[in-house]
Nucleic acid binder design. Structure first.
Lengths: 156, 156
DNA sequence: CCGGATGACTTGAAGCGTCAACTAAGTGGG
DNA sequence: CCCACTTAGTTGACGCTTCAAGTCATCCGG
């Protein structure tokens, strides 16, 4: 961090403040709604959703972790809890014993299906509904551009 | 949640996925940099920054909590830790004993001043630098619009 | 075909955030 | 004045995430 620091211009700062506030508040309202109505965290929801849309309703752990934007360790803990609740099964892959394959159970699928409408409605209400189609397109481009710097590994 | 659910259109979904990924990743890289280089979390940084820019380098707790986008309870825990580290003082307000006023100490100020350049550089590198001035303006509008729905209490 | 390196997780401990309960200080109607 | 109510903040327990360490399987060079 040597050299001159380029401080943020007022408009840059304002944008950053707004984005930062958004980043702190949005997860909260999403988690709150899901937790209250379905007993799931947003991360758990993503995990179940990721499984449900995969072939065989199954997916290997690292893959799921990437999908849900979490660490492998975090996923491991979460999947263990989901397994204890009967929403997910876990077993080693046949061809490579290092790999663990998680599968959503019928009861997990039911929970997901019950949770989805409320979650989607919440996302629509808070995020989508307030934006014009043009802004929606702008937002995708912007988010992807920032993402590509934050996490160059995963192309969009 | 009765009635028909309006599912997300593909482009709506795509935007939401990008935004969601951003919301999960950005806090991580910010926290990581601050933690590594300065031993502060982003929330702690915001708390110190909020104090440093206030008159008398002081601010009451609820006010600070709003500024840093966190609950009062969270702030209370964090300020206790910062106090133990000698970065902040705490004492009841003279005119109203219910109110607690937090003040940043000299050593807290030093830590903040040392942390700021790295943090600002990180924000610039990940968020600002990848966007055109036009996108920057768009992003502020978009973030504020979403924010006003998420948290109607706090106007921007 | 053996042994070290790498890959894919899993685990346990430590720290942080949330929730609910609690304390203490002001306020206000009777 | 008082007692109930509200406001401001603190606290403790609990759950979740992270980090570092550990396990077990597979790969690969000799």
């Amino acid at each position: 961090m040597a050299g001159e620091t380029e401080w943020l211009e007022p408009d840059e700062l304002a944008t950053w403040m707004s984005l930062a506030a958004l980043m702190f508040k949005l997860p909260g309202v999403l988690d709150y709604q899901l937790q209250r109505d379905s007993g799931l965290t947003h991360f758990e929801y993503l995990v179940l959703a990721g499984l449900s849309e995969s072939p065989g309703r199954s997916r290997r752990m690292s893959d799921l972790a990437g999908f849900a934007n979490g660490s492998l360790s975090r996923l491991s803990h979460v999947v263990k809890r989901l397994e204890q609740r009967g929403f997910v099964d876990r077993r080693p892959a046949e061809d490579d014993g290092r790999i663990t394959v998680a599968t959503i159970t019928d009861s997990g699928y039911e929970v997901l299906v019950a949770a989805a409408p409320g979650h989607v409605t919440t996302v629509r209400e808070y995020v989508i509904a307030g934006l014009t189609p043009e802004q929606l397109a702008q937002l995708k481009v912007i988010a992807d551009q920032i993402l590509s710097r934050v996490d160059p590994g995963k192309p969009c």
